[in-house]
Design a protein around this nucleic acid. Sequence first.
DNA 1: CTTTGGAAG
DNA 2: CTTCGAAAG
Lengths: 312, 312
Amino acid sequence: MSKRGKKVEEAVDEENGNAAAPPEAKKGKKGKEPEAPILYEDPPDKLTSKDGSAANMKITSWNVDGLRAWVKKKGLDWVREEAPDVICLQETKCAEKSLPKEITSMPEFPHKYWSGSDEKEGYSGVAMLCKTEPLNVTYGIEKEEHDKEGRVITAEFASFFLVTAYVPNASRGLVRLDYRKTWDVDFRAYLSDLDKRKPVVLCGDLNVAHQEIDLKNAKGNKKNAGFTPEEREGFTELLDAGFVDSFRELYPEQANAYTFWTYMMNSRSKNVGWRLDYFVLSKALLPNLCDNKIRNTAMGSDHCPITLHLAI
Amino acid sequence: MSKRGKKVEEAVDEENGNAAAPPEAKKGKKGKEPEAPILYEDPPDKLTSKDGSAANMKITSWNVDGLRAWVKKKGLDWVREEAPDVICLQETKCAEKSLPKEITSMPEFPHKYWSGSDEKEGYSGVAMLCKTEPLNVTYGIEKEEHDKEGRVITAEFASFFLVTAYVPNASRGLVRLDYRKTWDVDFRAYLSDLDKRKPVVLCGDLNVAHQEIDLKNAKGNKKNAGFTPEEREGFTELLDAGFVDSFRELYPEQANAYTFWTYMMNSRSKNVGWRLDYFVLSKALLPNLCDNKIRNTAMGSDHCPITLHLAI
DNA sequence: CTTTGGAAG
DNA sequence: CTTCGAAAG
């Protein structure tokens, strides 16, 4: 009577999902060859920019995959320890009135901004918590059709715009890839417009692994959400518009550095992951870039947090 | 954006639900008077019948409110300790193919019978596990319209029929009370027919508290599922058809003896409960009745198990 | 309050 | 595998 045997679910993942099951993992199941996982250890924080200026702005971004569950799993303790100036959260999946008071009352961040899905409760949603008050805060990307799912918050600071985004997933079977393409065009236009006014820091779950180096199983995922040519091209076009992927800028050859691992098939313990979370900077900010950390030991979500150090 | 603030839910319970919030509980909230709960301690098992015969048949019934969760909460450890000859389970909410192997492989009960809902997965469902093989086992009550929700299993033994039932809940707002009345009529006819052939032991969640003594908050629940005049009358009519409520037969004045406590409002710790689970016997079995225990210290569900001792 | 299957990731 | 809201109790 059950409609979801284990085998059925795994089959779906392998065909359509972004589960990232590598050939090795599948072999391991049948032929019994565990294969030692290739882990990634993030190096110590570099706290100076290229020209030697000291980092003085720390921004963290984390797709929490359900704010309430993440709070229960002590996500906020980690944030307190990390102590960024701004913490950006994606996939909060929580209406404002249902927010746990552990976070709404957090004194470390007196300035808190929330955006949730208008329609589906418990879907999407982003947040930005700041130590110091931004000059201005806006929601969405100024396009009606994109601004009903709580995906973008923009904060204006003295010398830059900070944009946090939860980019639409193209979904199983790529049923939402067409919409995603439209989003990519419009989002890029939005960022380019901002960039004309002040340099931009974009952070969040951009739901794409840009190059083969950015996920474990490139070969098997070319037709899966997050690694289609269309999504990858979208990211390339964003960079071509005058932005840089700060992690890749700093570590051009670093493989096995991921920010997301599906909960399925023990992917995280095997480091079968994807780099989906980014700090993308206006080129004008390159001199201010100190480091882009991947905090892959922080638990509480299927994504890990990333942290940007700027000297600004 | 959220549609379920705490206040809204409680209001629903108080108006329509069988939440059994007593006036005291409500007062306690506002006026701060905790009120010491009146607990019930089940007496030691009596293992002889009225005429002095020794108990030799032990039957346990438990509404597990989700077999899989109940197994995780060590319900089977309790069953092993109790060691009945037959264990009857209600609200298994589990298709046969999804049963945990901890129970399907249980060697103590080589003879296992399952009945699940044909339509809604994870809804209703009953089971009967036996040490010795019944002469015959049937499912349902021989009425098409009632037999699609996995509510009844009947096992024929040498000297009696054992019927386990999960009687339909009249539901919030009594939306299913009309159906329940039909059920009560047809179920009674089914039991009477069986009774013509051999005496009957009926056990399970009959989803009615018969008299005021059978729940904490009689006054407040007269319009709520489980204590409407119609449901109570249905039970009376069953007794009038030649059956006895074995617990009440043995303990006619015993108040505060309940088998169900809503998970809401800490009802169990306050013993704000209902007696919804019964062993109902054909009158012919009265000489065989030794005891009807209420195992209210057994945890793992919002119901507790009950155990019948027969000398037969 | 807690369980379940279903949508989504 | 895990989140969430929905239906049900």
